[in-house]
Amino acid sequence: MIIYAININSGGGKVLLDRLLIENPFERTTAVLLDSRYTPPREFTGYTVYFKVWERLFAEVLLHKKLKTEANNESVLFFGNLPPFIKTKVKSILYLQNCYLTRQVPLPEDSLKVKFRSFVESLLLKLFYKNVDEIWVQTEWMKTITQKYCPKANIKIKPFLPLLPQAHPKATKDYKFTYVGSLSINKGLPNFLKALEDLDKSLKSKIKVSVVLNNTLEEANQSGLFTKSLLNITLDLKCRVGREELSRIYEASEFLVVTSLYESFYLPAYEAIHFGCKVIASKNVGYLSHLHDSKDFIFYSGDDLDLTKLSI
């Protein structure tokens, strides 16, 4: 399999791409076309070419040339949400991880730049999705909304997790609740902080809560979300932690609280369970609906999080 991933360099996409290159969960990876900002795992020894994001068209030309001269029996996985401009002569697959591109959920409102980029990429998906033989997604919910936007697509559910180290959950947890996300509007951090304020008034003993953000500390302070003082809750704010530290936080947490409205997969939920941390989420979030019967999840009705009403 040849992997085309010239716009993947960080976040959840990076950790999944690492797994693809190391363990080949679908097919053996023989070559990759990568974002110049991405550093592949040292275990990967296949053919590698790097491109700037704006060199996408040039990268695709090279891909078609390689397929024509060297790799007629290969399949191609477009791992970066966008299909090719030209259909390949071999089996091609698009791995779609961005629910915003389906236009079945509101476009992100955090910045005009992000909103415009999502709008343009959604148009590219609509125009060129027929250039792949299959679209792979991670959940049934994602399949449903993608099928609405790309009605003629052959869509398959193909989830996989990143490489996760062996778990060592703490018997006595340091944190009652943990939030993992960002300041993005979709992530619902204010909803979680409001629930903590309400819970704080009813507590008779003190607890610790961890908030892990994919933002800088300066951005967190400028958001104005952390100005309220709590009497019985100690808030431990961490920004841009590494993978090892995040694992330790999960191991030291009793519950991960999910407030994000729209996700294609929401990797933190699966990571938390692996490291011995249960998950609290609303039944209304479609991206976790396939887990309603899981013993590791506590689902509540409605959109408003009320930690005082949960039996935890």
Score class of each variant (00 low, 15 high):
174 D>R: 15
226 F>H: 12
150 C>S: 10
174 D>G: 13
156 K>W: 12
219 E>C: 10
158 K>Y: 10
207 I>Q: 08
138 Q>P: 11
169 P>F: 06
185 I>L: 14
176 K>W: 02
166 Q>D: 11
201 K>A: 10
229 S>P: 04
157 I>H: 08
209 V>L: 08
202 S>I: 07
109 E>K: 15
180 V>D: 01
226 F>T: 07
139 T>N: 00
225 L>N: 13
120 V>H: 02
218 E>W: 10
197 E>D: 13
123 L>W: 15
114 V>Q: 10
155 I>V: 10
176 K>C: 00
194 K>S: 14
221 N>P: 09
109 E>I: 13
185 I>M: 15
222 Q>Y: 08
153 A>T: 07
212 V>R: 05
195 A>S: 13
119 F>E: 03
160 F>Y: 15
204 K>N: 13
182 S>M: 11
209 V>C: 09
158 K>S: 11
197 E>V: 15
184 S>Y: 13
204 K>E: 12
135 I>R: 02
189 L>N: 06
126 K>A: 08
162 P>W: 04
221 N>I: 00
234 T>H: 11
149 Y>C: 10
129 Y>K: 02
112 L>M: 11
145 I>V: 09
177 F>I: 05
177 F>Y: 14
121 E>I: 04
147 Q>D: 05
174 D>C: 14
113 K>D: 01
162 P>G: 09
135 I>P: 02
151 P>L: 09
192 F>Y: 11
130 K>Q: 15
125 L>H: 03
196 L>Q: 07
192 F>W: 09
178 T>P: 04
209 V>E: 03
120 V>E: 01
127 L>P: 02
220 A>G: 15
181 G>H: 04
223 S>I: 04
118 S>C: 11
162 P>D: 05
190 P>N: 03
130 K>P: 03
105 V>L: 00
135 I>Q: 01
206 K>E: 13
216 T>H: 07
137 V>N: 03
183 L>N: 05
105 V>W: 03
149 Y>V: 05
197 E>A: 14
108 P>E: 01
130 K>C: 04
167 A>F: 08
173 K>R: 14
